[in-house]
Simulated scan of single mutants.
Amino acid sequence: MEQAVIHSPLGPLTLFAEDNRLIALVFGNYGGYDDIPLFREAQRQLEEYFSGQRRTFSLPMNPEGTDFQRRVWGALMEIPYGAPISYRDLAARVDVPKAFQAVGQANGKNPIPILIPCHRVIAANGTLGGYSGGLERKRFLLELEGYVCKPAPKKPRLQTGGSIGF
């Protein structure tokens, strides 16, 4: 397995490849500086994406997962740049409309975030939902694509004061 670290506005990203196909992208510096054409091309495409010049990626990828996960990840690739959809919508796109929680779990196990744009899936109420790379990174990616993120709903505060008589 080859790996290389590239730098991005989100911090270092470590790319992993086998048989000249990307198998993972991990947030953080996990070492490795294999200099192969695939990593140079991935770095070029990611730089274009972060500078607003690229909307889709064309890199050979082979994410490891179940057939269901791979089906979900394939559907993620079809979500247009800057146009997030809900987990429920994603479930309908993979023909399991009532299994939006399972779709959400498959989305969260995406081993190649950004390139397979799992950040484009949000909660039905328009808030961010979750993201394996953290919500600040998800917000950054969505806003980079021109989407205006909704603030998370405020949690109700408990009333304090008063006394309980015993």
Rank of each mutant, 00 (worst) to 15 (best):
Q53K: 01
R55H: 12
G65D: 08
S58H: 13
L15E: 00
M61W: 03
A91S: 07
I85C: 15
L22I: 03
T56W: 01
T66Q: 15
L46I: 03
F50R: 07
R21Q: 13
R93M: 15
E18G: 11
F27V: 01
W73C: 01
L46Q: 02
A75P: 00
M77F: 07
L76I: 06
A17H: 02
N20F: 09
R54M: 04
P60I: 12
R54I: 03
E41H: 10
L38M: 05
L25Y: 08
P80Y: 02
R21C: 11
E48P: 14
R54G: 09
G52V: 02
R54S: 00
E78T: 12
D89H: 09
R70P: 02
R55M: 05
A42S: 07
Q53I: 01
Y49C: 05
N29Y: 14
L22R: 02
N29I: 15
G52T: 00
R21V: 04
L76D: 00
N62V: 04
E47A: 14
P37C: 00
D19W: 13
A83V: 15
D89A: 15
D19M: 12
N62W: 00
E64Y: 12
Y49M: 04
G74M: 06
R21P: 02
I79M: 09
E18N: 04
Q53W: 03
D35L: 08
L15S: 02
R21K: 11
F39Y: 05
A83R: 15
A75F: 02
G32D: 01
L59R: 05
V26Y: 10
N62C: 00
M61Y: 00
G28F: 13
W73Q: 05
D35R: 11
L76F: 06
Y33I: 07
P63D: 06
V26M: 14
Y81C: 01
G28H: 10
L25C: 06
L38E: 05
S58C: 10
F68L: 11
G82L: 14
R54Q: 01
T14D: 05
D89C: 11
L38D: 11
L46H: 00
V72C: 08
G74A: 15
S58A: 14
R70N: 12
G32A: 08
D34P: 14
R44P: 13
D19S: 15
L38Q: 03
E78V: 14
R44T: 07
E78D: 13
I85Q: 11
S86H: 11
N29E: 14
N62I: 01
Y49G: 08
E78F: 14
D35W: 03
G65R: 06
G28D: 04
I36L: 11
Y81W: 06
A83N: 15
